[in-house]
Design a binder for these strands. Structure first.
Length: 499
DNA sequence: TTAGGGTTAG
């Protein structure tokens, strides 16, 4: 870290005589200012800096500290503040003979996108169009993922279209499948159709099995099994994109989800006997899940035996799926048996397996047993996550053990456990349902102190008014005033999380 | 991390 600070001071000092392109002076490395991209368009488009001074000790020192591309990348990666990272990016370019390349652009874009500084991302992308160096499409695939994560789906498509203009090559099959999969995964039906139309009209390409598989998933997600089957039939008529294990597993999953279990089994048999494709643990899991959802738990359990007999060892995924099936049917004893069986075969339960069983106990009202399992997780160095604690919080509340739930909410973040908005929502909903209004108030203060705003604020105020709890109503009003004041001061904007 | 599986809440 010290090296990075020295480097910034050194560049800031050497920069003071040059034109400044930043929104703030380079010496004032503050992130509190509003974000304005400090990028310039291109070296050529701008006036040349002052001529270099005569060789002095300082300039010799500068030469000695020449920053290579590799060092620049490391400095940008290590820098936490995206604005500082961008300043480093700009500053290194001022060194004589230094031109950014694909790797430095990829690094700064990743840093900015991770920090959601999308205006700055746009400025960097604009600068790239003036560069002569060769870019790789990987930069755009990475940006597509960031945009998708932030639900900026139009921009995913836009990044795909940018590949051809900036990379000056047709997007690869990998780029097509990445874009298509991101749109399908985020259930962007219209954009997916738009993209498919674009592919058909503009890019004459032959889809491979991977792309067809994403299409099968797309139709399964839309519950349009007939279209999914049509795609698989089309695949069968092609040599280069014949259905594989993933195709069959996806389609079987779609059929199971639509309650067409019989067809899913027929497909499984066709896959094994006709196409001689061997199922793996993942394929079996689709069937186990299907049987569980159809309430056929004993058949689901028999699949584990079938797997072993056919040379496929069940995984913790298979066991957790089955345990969850038993849990949903309130068959706690069998869920515990499955858990023990998993351990007896030498499998180490993970966080999800433990959480599944803890949920079984909580649903059965056996909170103390659930807490014991939490202890066992600690002993076995299996880290409980937010979901584990949310399951426990729900269990405690269902049993009316509100003090313990509130205690957990208060204490866990202090012990370094991350809680999310669901954690607070679970407890607050129970408190409101059970009319525990003073405890709800207590939780509300805790939440506001942690910058979580409950979704049920209005609902709470109605309850308080109906119960003639004037003091609580007044407190609630004060909370709202405080929050609105925070907004007007721009203090909490962007930090408050609606629960 | 170019395509398929298990846990909470809503």
């Amino acid at each position: 870290m010290k090296a990075a600070t020295d480097f910034i001071s050194f560049l800031a000092a050497s920069f003071s005589r040059h034109r400044c392109f930043s929104s703030s002076p380079p010496s004032a490395l503050s992130s509190s200012l509003p974000w304005i991209s400090p990028l310039r368009l291109s070296k050529a488009a701008l006036p040349k800096p002052d001529p270099p001074p005569e060789a002095t000790t300082a300039s010799v020192e500068r030469k000695r500290k020449y920053i290579s591309h590799e060092s620049a990348i490391n400095l940008i990666k290590r820098e936490r503040d995206p604005q500082h990272a961008l300043e480093i990016f700009n500053m290194v370019e001022e060194q004589n003979g230094f031109n950014h390349n694909c790797a430095t652009y990829a690094t700064i874009l990743d840093k900015l996108a991770r920090s959601k500084k999308f205006q700055a991302v746009d400025a960097v992308l604009l600068q790239m169009t003036y560069e002569t160096c060769k870019f790789h499409e990987g930069i755009f695939l990475n940006l597509m993922k960031h945009f998708s994560k932030c639900s900026m789906h139009e921009r995913v498509l836009e990044m795909f279209c940018t590949i051809q203009t900036v990379v000056r090559e047709k997007p690869s099959l990998k780029a097509i499948s990445t874009c298509l999969n991101l749109l399908v995964e985020s259930k962007q039906i219209d954009l997916t159709q738009k993209f498919l139309l674009h592919l058909r009209k503009r890019l004459k390409f032959k889809p491979n099995t991977c792309i067809f598989n994403i299409l099968v998933k797309h139709h399964c997600k839309n519950k349009d099994l007939e279209l999914a089957l049509q795609v698989v039939n089309e695949m069968k008529s092609s040599r280069i994109s014949y259905p594989n294990l993933i195709t069959y597993s996806t389609l079987m999953g779609g059929l199971c989800e639509s309650g067409r279990l019989k067809e899913a089994i027929e497909l499984f048999e066709e896959m094994v006997s006709k196409d001689q494709v061997l199922p793996d643990a993942l394929t079996y899991n689709v069937l186990i899940n299907g049987f569980c959802h159809a309430g056929k738990l004993d058949r689901a359990r028999k699949i584990l035996v079938f797997m072993r007999n056919n040379g496929c060892n069940p995984t913790i995924f298979n066991y957790s799926t089955l345990m969850n099936g038993f849990c949903k049917e309130s068959r706690l004893l069998e869920a515990m048996e499955v858990f023990d069986e998993m351990k007896s075969f030498g499998l180490k339960p993970d966080t999800v397996s433990y959480t599944t069983l803890i949920n079984c106990f909580c649903r059965a009202g056996k909170i103390d047993e659930a807490t014991k399992l939490l202890e066992e997780m600690k002993e076995r160095e299996c880290r409980a996550d937010t979901v584990t604690f949310n399951v426990l919080l729900g269990g405690l509340c269902r049993e009316g053990r509100f003090e313990e739930a509130l205690g957990m909410l208060e204490k866990l973040p202090r012990d370094g456990v991350y809680l999310n908005k669901a954690s607070y929502r679970i407890v607050l909903n129970f408190l409101c349902q059970k009319g525990e209004l003073s405890k709800a108030m207590e939780l509300l203060f805790l939440m506001l102190g942690r910058r979580f705003l409950p979704h049920s604020l209005l609902q709470m105020s109605c309850w308080f008014a109906l119960a003639r709890l004037d003091w609580q109503l007044m407190q609630l009003q004060r909370c709202l005033d405080w929050w609105i004041w925070g907004l007007s001061q721009n203090l909490n904007h962007g930090f408050i999380c609606w629960n």
